[in-house]
């Protein structure tokens, strides 16, 4: 078997691409390689780009990447698109707007389908970020699915989350669900040359100021204006992200963020592995079917079955 971990560390695009496929497929072969890569992760800075559909996230990702490349930084991009719940298929179209990055050896881009995972990301997105990190990318951009406002999982992975809003798409503060405004470390008003941009800018700014006066926050999210199509405001946006990074690093918040991430990730991995093992065993020996039958007939309750299975597993 090829030593993918070693090849990734040596910069092999092919090895990284294959390892990512395994992660997406939840192929157990990935584990061993990830185990060896882990020590080499944690170097990259992770930026999340999220917002409504049509907000211009791909174009923004393209322009930000270009700006970062000009600064000499290498970039990994993970662009997530939804899978169809009916067919399981997906059209991943983010490369269209990022065509000019394809031949840049300093950029690795991967399109991912959500495969039924909610929250705006694919299940394996976090792992893919690690592979790109180990591959040596300085900055990793995660572009989320743009389907609504519940897709806020990106904050679990990103050091800086940019929330992209545009005038004329119903992106008004009133329409924001509780909690969405809070995910932003940086606000981006894209398509800022459109009618309604000034109003949206004013609304967001006012809201940010109100929040700041109500409760003490160490970081006040800046509100940036861009016209991504015309490459306007991108430099300022990158600077705002850098300022946030500096803040995180100097205040110790970055370390705290990453500690929290490690904790969640570890618990999640344990959860996933326990689940898989128990499920596999229950399925293999037919016990699950018997339990389900009993539960359906109300001879057994799912609660007691759960306690029973877990208790027995713990004993072993």
């Amino acid at each position: 078997m090829r030593d993918y971990a070693k090849e990734v560390l040596e910069g092999s695009v092919r090895a990284a691409a294959r390892l990512i496929s395994w992660l997406e497929d939840e192929d157990p072969r990935a584990l061993e390689h990830m185990e060896r890569l882990y020590a080499h992760t944690g170097r990259a800075y992770v930026m999340g780009i999220t917002g409504s559909p049509g907000a211009g996230k791909s174009t923004l990702t393209d322009k930000v990447t270009f700006a970062l490349r000009k600064k000499g930084l290498t970039v990994g991009i993970v662009a997530v698109d939804p899978s169809s719940p009916f067919t399981g298929g997906a059209v991943l179209g983010d490369r269209v707007r990022m065509s000019r990055l394809t031949m840049d050896p300093g950029v690795f881009m991967r399109s991912m389908a959500t495969r039924g995972f909610l929250g705006g990301l694919a299940k394996a997105t976090g792992e893919v970020v690690k592979v790109l990190d180990a591959l040596g990318k300085d900055v990793i951009l995660i572009e989320t699915v743009g389907v609504g406002q519940d897709e806020v999982d990106v904050i679990r992975l990103a050091d800086t989350t940019c929330l992209v809003l545009v005038p004329g798409l119903g992106d008004t503060i009133q329409s924001m669900k509780a909690g969405v405004m809070e995910i932003a470390d940086v606000f981006v008003i894209n398509k800022a040359d459109r009618p309604g941009a000034d109003q949206l800018y004013a609304e967001v700014t006012t809201r940010v100021e109100q929040d700041a006066s109500i409760r003490e926050r160490a970081w006040t999210p800046p509100v940036m204006r861009t016209v991504a199509v015309d490459d306007e405001g991108i430099g300022d946006l990158v600077e705002a992200v850098e300022a946030h990074r500096k803040f995180l690093e100097e205040s110790g918040a970055l370390e705290e963020k990453r500690r929290r991430r490690a904790r969640e990730e570890t618990l999640q991995l344990i959860h996933g592995e326990l689940y898989r093992r128990i499920r596999d065993r229950l399925t293999a020996n037919g016990e699950l079917d018997a339990l389900v039958e009993a539960i359906v007939q109300r001879r057994e309750s799912p609660y007691r079955a759960m306690q029973h299975v877990v208790a027995r597993w713990m004993r072993e």
Binding site: G89, A90, R95, R110, A113
Partner: peptide
């Protein structure tokens, strides 16, 4: 996509080099 595949659409004006790099990544 309807047949259950994951389709990466590249858009227009692709050179052979770009197509192959995309397949690789």
């Amino acid at each position: 996509a309807e047949a259950g595949m994951e389709v990466v659409y590249t858009g227009l004006r692709q050179t052979p080099e770009m197509i192959v790099e995309t397949a690789l990544q």
